[in-house]
């Protein structure tokens, strides 16, 4: 008999309509259906959610933190993407 452990799943929960699903943690389950049920029992005991996503942890691809400089620093110098970069005279509203 195999003594294989249940795979690890990442859990994402939408706390209410209008908000995105947010990563809350992980758990073990034999399959996706069980992962949803377990997520309901583990992570929504205090009415924290109305919708659940689960994804097997090994299927998540993450960016490499060692490349964080190359990936994310260039955006820092593009301040013109932010509205506060622009001067608007005092009398102008709704902008």
């Amino acid at each position: 008999m195999s003594n294989k452990e249940w795979p690890l799943w990442e859990v994402f929960i939408r706390s209410k309509q209008g908000l995105s699903h947010k990563h809350v943690g992980s758990l073990r389950a034999a399959d996706a259906e069980m992962a949803i049920d377990n997520a309901r029992d583990v992570y929504t005991r205090r009415s924290e959610g109305i919708s659940i996503w689960v994804v097997e942890s090994k299927l998540v691809t993450a960016s490499d933190p060692r490349e964080a400089d190359a990936l994310f620093d260039p955006a820092d110098s593009k301040v013109y993407r932010h509205p506060t970069f622009y001067d608007v005279p005092d009398g102008i509203s709704h902008m």
Partner: peptide
Amino acid sequence: GLWVREAANAFAEKRK
């Protein structure tokens, strides 16, 4: 619980 966890694994594979 071993036989229970094994059964769930076996069933998950069959389902897949």
